[in-house]
Simulated scan of single mutants.
Amino acid sequence: MHGCEGEILKYGDDVFQSVTVFPPFSSSKRLPWFIYIHGGAWVDPNQDKTMGYSLIQNTVPNEWGAASINYRLSPSVQHPTHLQDIFDAIAMISRLYNVSNFLIVGHSAGACLALQFLKKISEFSQSYDTNLQIPEISAIVCVEGIYDLVELYSEYPNYLYFIEKAFGDCHEDWRRASPCHFDWDKIRQFSQAKIFLVQSLQDELLSMRQVLLMKEILQSGGCDCEFHTINGGSHDETVQSEALASLFQRLIKES
């Protein structure tokens, strides 16, 4: 597994605009990169890029590069600033390293950001922006993700505190930002990335409602989608679980 020591790089002036990179052993050829985006409901400073380190060190082979991203949090910023930070971090990695393709992993709010990122770069492609040079995304793995903010509020009214901090108080803005409401047929024309949806059966913060909605939307949009349930423990334990590491080891071997 990945034995390189991580190096912290800055992609902006804010303290949260940093990424820890684990470069591949070889830099002379184009190689896959594993990208981790942490959760924390867009607001929790205790959830950061360190959450991805054990997954990288236990599952990512030395021949790959890997990175775990920090981004600015609400209420200091609101959507789409979190997404812009993810974009800027991945664009920096694309410039600095010889990347063949990305496998992007997002947990909770990070899963939402990963799918928002795919939509963002598909829109750049459709506008023929020649300055955009992001390598292919081969797969996105969404672990215990938030996919529909309106439905999330309907199921968990007490989550309003972080939804409004991150997205404001307009429900239409929530809908537009939610992956369940993206035009997946249009995104699929840009990218053939396979999307994996992973949910721990012991998750106490999110029921199966979010992931089943997303699964239905992706399948109806013709996307290549695979759904897994695992015994990963509680919401915050799942990223560190043996069950998730085992699933990733299989996905990486097949990629």
Rank of each mutant, 00 (worst) to 15 (best):
A109C: 13
A109T: 15
A109Q: 08
G110N: 10
G110M: 09
G110P: 06
G110T: 14
G110I: 15
G110Q: 12
G110Y: 12
A111C: 09
A111I: 10
A111T: 12
A111E: 05
A111D: 12
A111M: 11
A111Q: 12
C112W: 03
C112N: 14
C112T: 13
C112L: 07
C112G: 08
C112M: 12
L113T: 11
L113I: 11
L113V: 12
L113F: 10
L113G: 09
A114D: 11
A114E: 10
A114K: 10
L115W: 05
L115Y: 04
L115Q: 09
L115D: 02
Q116P: 01
Q116F: 01
Q116Y: 01
Q116V: 02
Q116A: 03
Q116H: 04
F117A: 05
F117L: 08
F117R: 02
F117V: 04
F117K: 02
L118R: 01
L118Y: 03
L118S: 02
K119C: 04
K120Y: 10
K120F: 13
K120H: 11
I121C: 08
I121Q: 09
I121Y: 09
I121G: 10
S122V: 02
S122M: 03
S122L: 02
E123N: 14
E123L: 13
E123Y: 06
E123K: 07
F124I: 03
F124H: 12
F124K: 12
S125A: 11
S125D: 06
S125E: 12
S125R: 07
Q126M: 13
Q126H: 12
Q126V: 00
S127D: 08
Y128D: 11
Y128H: 15
Y128V: 01
D129Q: 12
D129S: 15
D129E: 09
D129G: 01
D129N: 14
T130Y: 07
T130R: 08
T130N: 04
T130I: 13
T130W: 03
T130M: 04
T130A: 06
N131K: 13
N131W: 06
N131Q: 10
N131E: 09
L132Q: 11
L132F: 07
L132R: 12
L132I: 15
Q133I: 03
Q133S: 15
Q133W: 02
Q133H: 14
Q133C: 06
Q133T: 06
Q133M: 06
I134F: 10
I134K: 03
I134Q: 04
I134L: 13
P135T: 09
P135N: 11
P135R: 08
P135H: 08
P135E: 13
P135W: 08
E136N: 11
E136V: 06
E136M: 05
E136Y: 04
E136G: 00
I137R: 03
S138V: 04
S138N: 09
S138I: 05
S138T: 06
S138D: 13
A139M: 11
A139F: 01
A139R: 14
A139N: 08
A139C: 10
A139K: 10
I140C: 04
I140G: 01
I140Y: 02
I140V: 15
V141G: 00
V141Y: 04
V141P: 00
C142D: 05
C142F: 06
C142A: 14
C142N: 13
C142E: 03
C142W: 08
C142S: 15
V143C: 07
V143H: 09
V143E: 00
V143Y: 04
V143Q: 10
V143P: 00
E144P: 00
E144G: 15
G145N: 07
G145I: 08
G145M: 01
G145D: 05
